[in-house]
């Protein structure tokens, strides 16, 4: 196709582009946008992202019942933080809390710390409040709060599942455990970076 054809192509392209499609007066566009915003919120913050994966990693390391108790407890406690954020209750040092959660959870995985069930749930629950608060403060700004809320909860849960999937390598000898602990180390480093940034050291 030569350059001489370009005008014809442009003309035809314009005609095709102008073809009418269905005009939806009440399209659920806002729902889609809210869902995508919610889904992306935990993913676009690397400190959020690694902390969520670390919850799954640690759960997998600790085995049953914590492999499922941590991902069940986290969203419920995250909701508490979300409520605080939605109603406008200020939580001190939220960004620092999120960075510390990544650092601490990363270290727990890297050092393969075997915590009692109640202690593990308590640790994860406290951190969940900070993450929930960060998501919750954004919710009133969403065009469709339910879609946004569903998005970030879904995203958080799927990141936990990803962490569990990676954490299951722990069972594979001889390198699996080292890989999982290495992932914990990476999480801790990311957390440390964000902690230093949050306190203004970087």
């Amino acid at each position: 196709m030569s350059l001489r054809s370009l005008p014809q192509i442009a003309l035809c392209g314009a005609l095709v582009a102008l073809m009418p499609s269905a005009a939806l007066a009440h399209a659920e566009v806002a729902v889609g946008a809210g869902l995508v915003n919610g889904l992306m919120h935990p993913i676009l913050g690397p400190d959020h992202l690694v902390a969520m994966v670390a919850v799954g990693l640690w759960g997998a390391q600790l085995r049953a019942p914590l492999i499922w108790a941590l991902p069940v407890a986290f969203p419920l406690m995250m909701a508490v933080g979300g409520v605080l954020g939605v109603i406008g209750v200020d939580l001190p040092a939220v960004e620092i809390g999120i960075a510390v959660s990544a650092l601490a959870l990363g270290l727990l995985v890297a050092l393969a710390v075997k915590a009692p069930n109640a202690a593990a749930v308590a640790v994860v629950s406290v951190f969940a409040i900070f993450h929930g608060h960060a998501h919750g403060t954004e919710l009133p700004h969403a065009a469709t709060p339910i879609a946004y809320g569903l998005g970030f909860v879904l995203s958080t849960g799927l990141l936990h599942v990803s962490g569990i999937a990676i954490g299951l390598l722990d069972k594979i000898k001889p390198m699996g455990g080292s890989i999982v602990r290495g992932c914990g180390g990476i999480v801790a480093l990311v957390g440390l970076y964000y902690l230093l940034r949050a306190v203004g050291a970087l």
Partner: peptide, 30 residues
Amino acid sequence: IGFRTIGSWIAAVAIILMAFSVSGTPAVAG
């Protein structure tokens, strides 16, 4: 366990929405 996890996700969304509704915070487009 997977179904129970989905239940916890649903609960989380609902609890936050209840707070949103009760607080009367206006939703802002965008």
